[in-house]
Amino acid sequence: MTEDFYCEEVLSGKTKVNKVLETDHVLAYYHTKPFYPVHIVAIPKKHIPSLITLEEDDNDLLLELLGVVKEVASMVTKEKGTCRVITNLGTYQDSKHLHWHIVSGKPLKS
């Protein structure tokens, strides 16, 4: 896996995605290799390595990102009745780009 799948593949256009919601600074799309029946990823278009590396200058972007996460989570909850919102840090974070997973359903079998 690349160090930053989101910049290198998704935001560059190399990997095509099914968009759910997009703003000037944030993209939410269906995961390319879902782990759940509903698996949406929300990312900032600016490279930020993780939640704990956010700078004070990123506060407006974080609010916009969380607004998109909230809107997508509301859509999923309305349709499915439930969802989870997840972000990973450290070694749990495969791609070193801040991202949130909005998921619903039981994990898919590998």
Rank of each mutant, 00 (worst) to 15 (best):
L108D: 01
T23N: 09
I102G: 13
V41I: 15
V41A: 03
V76I: 15
E71Q: 15
E22M: 14
R84C: 08
L98S: 02
E3I: 10
K80S: 12
A28K: 13
T53L: 02
S50I: 08
K46D: 04
S104Q: 05
H101Q: 05
Y6E: 03
V41N: 05
T2L: 12
L21T: 11
L65E: 06
L108K: 00
L89T: 13
I52S: 11
P37F: 04
H39I: 09
M75R: 14
I40F: 00
E8G: 06
A42C: 14
T82S: 15
F5P: 02
N18M: 09
G13S: 03
K70G: 07
K19C: 04
L61Q: 05
A28G: 14
D57P: 01
E8N: 12
V69G: 12
G81N: 11
L21G: 13
V103M: 00
K78V: 06
K80P: 04
I52P: 05
T23P: 08
K109R: 10
M1Q: 13
P37D: 06
V85F: 09
V72C: 03
Y29L: 15
V69E: 06
H47G: 02
L66A: 10
P37C: 12
N18C: 06
D57I: 12
L108R: 01
I102W: 05
S12W: 04
N18I: 10
L51I: 15
I86F: 07
V41K: 00
G13L: 11
S110E: 11
P34G: 08
H101A: 09
K70I: 04
I52D: 07
V38D: 09
P44W: 08
S74P: 01
K46P: 03
V72F: 04
K106H: 10
L89N: 11
M1H: 10
V38W: 02
S50N: 13
S95L: 07
C7A: 08
Y92L: 13
H101V: 09
G90F: 02
H25K: 15
K70R: 15
P44C: 11
Y92E: 08
V68G: 08
V10T: 11
N88K: 03
D4Y: 04
E56N: 14
G105Q: 05
V20Y: 09
T15G: 01
T82P: 00
H39E: 07
D57M: 03
P107E: 08
N88E: 10
Q93W: 04
E8Y: 00
V85D: 04
H31W: 01
V26Y: 13
G90E: 02
D24S: 15
L89S: 02
P49F: 03
D94S: 15
I48H: 06
I40P: 00
K96P: 00
P37G: 06
L89G: 10
H31V: 02
S110A: 07
N88V: 07
T82M: 10
V10A: 15
H39N: 07
P37H: 06
K106F: 00
I48A: 10
L66Y: 03
T82R: 14
P37Y: 06
F35K: 14
V76C: 04
P37S: 00
T91W: 01
N88A: 12
H31I: 00
